[in-house]
Amino acid sequence: MVEYGSSQEIRVYDWRLLAVQQLDFSVLIEYLPAIMNGLFMTIKISIMSIILGSIMGVGGALCRTSKSLLLRSIGNIYVEWIRNTPLLIQILFIYFGLGVFLNLSPMVASVLALSFFSGAYITEIIRAGIRSIHRGQREAALSIGMTEWQVMRLIILPQAIKRILPPLAGQFITLIKDSSLVSVIAVTDLTYVAKNIVTITFRAFEVWFAIAAFYFILSFGLSLAVRKLEERLAESD
C-alpha cells in the first residue's frame, strides 16, 4: 500500500514544477520585431492623441468658461456625451459608424476616438485649473489694458498649467493604457500584436506579462518626466 496523502502532495508539487519549467521567454526574442512595431504604433497613437486631445481640451475649456451661452452649451454636451458613454463604443462608432460616411483608416479612427475621449476629460481638468486662478489676476491684467485673449494666454493659462499638470499627467497615462482598446478595430498596436503572438505560440503568460511590462514602462516613464517638469515649474512658488 502506498500512503495516499503523501503521493498526492508529491503530485501537486510536480505539477507546479512542471509549469515553471515550461515557461519559455525566448518566444519574446523570436517575436521582438513584431512587438517593437506594436510598441511604436502604441507610442505613435498615444502621442498623436495626447496632442490632439490637449488641443480639444483647451478648446473645450475655453468653450465651457466662455461668456457665450451657445459655446458653453456645446462644451457641456461634448463633455457629458463623452464621459457618459464607454470608450469602446466610441471607438466602434467612429470606425464602423462614421465609417459609413467617411473612409477612415483604423489608425485615424483610433486617434480621433482617443482624442475626443481624452479631450473631454482634459476639458474638465483645464476648466478647474482656470477656475482656481484668483480673479484678482484677471482684474489686474484687464486694468493694464490687456484684452480677454491676452489675459487668458499670458496670465491665466500659464498659472493654471502648473495646477493642471498632475491631473493632466494622470489623464495622459490613462490614455496610453486605454489605447489598448483600439486593437478591436485591427490597429496593429502592442495589444493587437500580443494577441496574434499568443494565438500562434500559446505563450499567454510570457507574452501578456511582457506586454504589461511595456505599458508599465511607457506610463511610469511619462509620470517621471512630468514630475521633473513640475519641479522645474515650481521655481516661482
Partner: peptide
Amino acid sequence: RQLTGMVFQQFNLFNHKNVLDNVTIG
C-alpha cells in the same frame, strides 16, 4: 484702462512672473 492705472488691496501681482516681468508685461 490704458489711461488709468489701478492698485488693488490684494496687490494681484502676476505670480508666475518675476518683478521685472510684472512691470514690463503691460
